[in-house]
Nucleic acid binder design. Sequence first.
DNA 1: GATCATTTCAAACGGGCGTTTCAATCATAC
DNA 2: GTATGATTGAAACGCCCGTTTGAAATGATC
Lengths: 226, 226
Amino acid sequence: MSSTHSSTKERILSAAERLFAEAGIGNTSLRLITTRARVNLAAVNYHFGSKDGLVEAVYERRLGPVTREWLANIENLEHEYGDRPIPVERIVESFVRPVARLASDENRGGRIFTRLLAQGYTEARQYFDKLFSSQYQHVLDRYRQSLRTALPHLPPGTLCWRLQFLLGALTQGLCGGELLRLMEGQADPNDTERAVDELIPFLVAGLRAEAPRLRESGPSTQGALA
Amino acid sequence: MSSTHSSTKERILSAAERLFAEAGIGNTSLRLITTRARVNLAAVNYHFGSKDGLVEAVYERRLGPVTREWLANIENLEHEYGDRPIPVERIVESFVRPVARLASDENRGGRIFTRLLAQGYTEARQYFDKLFSSQYQHVLDRYRQSLRTALPHLPPGTLCWRLQFLLGALTQGLCGGELLRLMEGQADPNDTERAVDELIPFLVAGLRAEAPRLRESGPSTQGALA
DNA sequence: GATCATTTCAAACGGGCGTTTCAATCATAC
DNA sequence: GTATGATTGAAACGCCCGTTTGAAATGATC
């Protein structure tokens, strides 16, 4: 391993990231990637072993820093508040910020990468699951723990669902942006700061909402519809 | 065209839907699809023209009924309330229900299809954009209009953002479900009814939240924060 | 400046891809 | 039953895929 980082590796990663996000991983060939990166075809197998290795590297390059920032944020909050509940706003903001930083990292292509996250659940599930269980899950548990303390009235199951909704809204708000472009141009999907400003009150209100009265869970219990 | 629908077409659609959702469109070959469907390889090109045509057909089969149900729901509400604002809960529920119906349509594979929606933005963007601009967008505008009346205090831009968040939470809640599986098993991602019960108060509270105080949008104009 | 490991390069490999072909089969109407 | 059109079938087409190879170029070490 050379001490100076290879520009070839980075060029491949950036080209692959962009093309994966645009057309999907399965539809993007190594030949196209290496052509865009102005690099020899064999360089992918030399530096990353295989296409699978490249996919894994593309994800890890972006997800690592975000996870580390999440962890630092929640630990700072826990230290600042000790045993007292952390305000929901601060928990939410400390979770949203790292993703926003990634999404607004234009020059390094972060905005492009975020589109890949949606694909993580299907095309790249094998790598995604590995990454998730190794670091992502741990961070998510920390945030869930803090939210349980901040929202003690919420049933744990309800909190889990709301975390899921939160992640969906976050992904759509900071990584999707396609819908807004089609809605009369009344909102700019690339305005990351605006997205954060809009996301936080939406999410905080959703998390703070009263828990639903649940129906019976037995079979054939059709509650009377209003 | 024969009057009796071909069972071959349906078998191909179902097999393709499942395999696309599992591994991505680009990673699924026609040979695998036709083997699973116990159908001749050439049947795909005969019935759908090409692989692209098959992808389009897979999306259209599921999305058409949902869009029609959305339209009927919002029109019923508009008729019921006339010029008076429709309660946010009813708007949200009438939007969530059709997706939930699709997600819970186990025996016909609806649950599987929903995973494909996330891919729509990347792998199948060309078909998705076509479908979106032809019908989806119209329906979404109707819902947005009803929400504007129901939430007159919200700036239009904020409402657009919140609709985007709503769609993200909805997708993640009813179509994703992977995260919940990994969260200590405190929630069942296949419990569609529970998902709806949890989604509605979350979304209604988020929509009803106070609009954020926005920062100045000019360069380097950091307004005094309260 | 010879040695050695690292990196780049052009070319080729076998294999799987989407698609086409054309004959065989089926259903239906005469 | 035979003609007709719609469907299915087995085989092949050319193409592009991910990967491998072995030699050339590069850069550091002594």
